[in-house]
């Protein structure tokens, strides 16, 4: 990890409201690497929006330091290389989508000669139907507004993207589009920072996820290790046949250097030590004539971590 460039460096960030009574961010330190998709997750009032606000210079931290590409976040060059999609963007409803993109293009100080090309490619990538380009934004549907929001991000070909609750209210098509966009950005080594409530969304796209609660970062999970760590295999047996004896299952597990976790009703649980063992397990189960009806990998996911942090927090406080 250390060879990777740090895109955003946050050190001891403190942001309080009401003359210091409420600490929205309490000594937050964080490094976000270039090219990764970084998720921020936490309950309402945890500080994720505040953190994003500080990164975008929409809020001023009381103390601490932020460095983006080695520069302070309010540097114009940093802004020129980043893009932002607010949760509920307020567009100029009297403009047409195309006019709005022109306005954003000019605001981004991009060369006028490339305007048409940049706008049309951004709109096309965001999958906004060309027939809608010249319609007034006032008449846009929810889905079209979401696409326009994504399109305006693409204009400046950013190196860093901020997304605030991107999945909120998105239809499946929109969510799919967003996912594809994130994957494309990953390939281009664009850093993405996103806030979300949608845990499964985060699970699917993020490289790392930070859990924020009460203005502090409780845990940072590497999604790859999270997925890998848990190789929990669940085997559902057919109800018509008798379940295999525990001893057999323990023997099976031993063969794979895996752990037999037990049987509940007709569900058998194993924890494997490596991914390659999945195939071996299936073969062994079939060989031993275990009446398998269904077999799948159970993910101990973000939800569990989220809940446990929350519960711990409650117990502690």
């Amino acid at each position: 990890m250390s060879e990777r460039e740090i895109c955003i460096k946050i050190a001891n960030l403190v942001k309080s409201y009401g003359r210091g009574r409420v600490r929205a961010l309490d000594d937050v330190s964080l490094d976000i690497y270039e090219g990764e998709v970084f998720g921020l997750i936490g309950p309402n009032g945890a500080g994720k929006t505040t953190l994003m606000g500080c990164l975008l210079t929409l809020l001023r931290p009381n103390s601490g330091e932020i460095r983006i590409f080695g520069k302070p976040p309010d540097d114009l060059q940093v802004k020129a290389q980043s893009a932002f999609l607010p949760e509920r963007p307020n567009f100029d409803t009297w403009m047409s989508g195309y006019q709005f993109m022109k306005y954003q293009h000019m605001l981004a100080k991009l060369p006028g000669s490339a305007m048409k090309q940049d706008i049309e490619s951004a709109l096309a990538t965001a999958e906004l139907d060309p027939s809608a380009w010249n319609k007034r934004i006032k008449k846009y549907s929810r889905g079209m507004l979401q696409r326009l929001g994504l399109a305006q991000m693409l204009l400046a070909k950013p190196r860093l993207c901020f997304l605030d609750e991107p999945g909120s209210g998105m239809d499946p098509l929109g969510a799919n589009l967003l996912r594809n966009l994130l994957l494309a950005w990953k390939k281009q080594k664009v850093t993405v920072v996103l806030n979300s409530h949608h845990l499964d969304e985060l699970e699917r796209v993020c490289d790392r996820v930070a859990f924020i609660k009460g203005g502090r970062i409780h845990q940072i999970e590497e999604m790859s290790s999270l997925a890998a760590e848990q190789l929990l295999i669940v085997v559902k047996c057919s109800s018509s046949a008798a379940p295999p004896p525990d001893s057999l299952l323990r023997e099976l597990a031993a063969l794979l250097d895996a752990e037999f976790l037990g049987v509940t009703e007709e569900t058998i649980r194993f924890r494997l030590s490596k991914t390659a063992d999945k195939m071996q397990l299936v073969r062994l189960l079939v060989e031993k004539q275990v009446p398998v009806e269904e077999i799948f990998q159970e993910r101990k996911g973000l939800e569990d971590i989220f809940i446990s942090i929350h519960r711990d927090g409650d117990l502690r406080s």
């Binding site: 975008l56 802004k79 509920r88 307020n90 605001l107």
Partner: peptide
Amino acid sequence: ANTRQMNDGEYLSLLFSRPL
């Protein structure tokens, strides 16, 4: 925008994410 909000923060937050 036509929303006539008293708080125009949501509009300006997008505007000021640009190099302006």
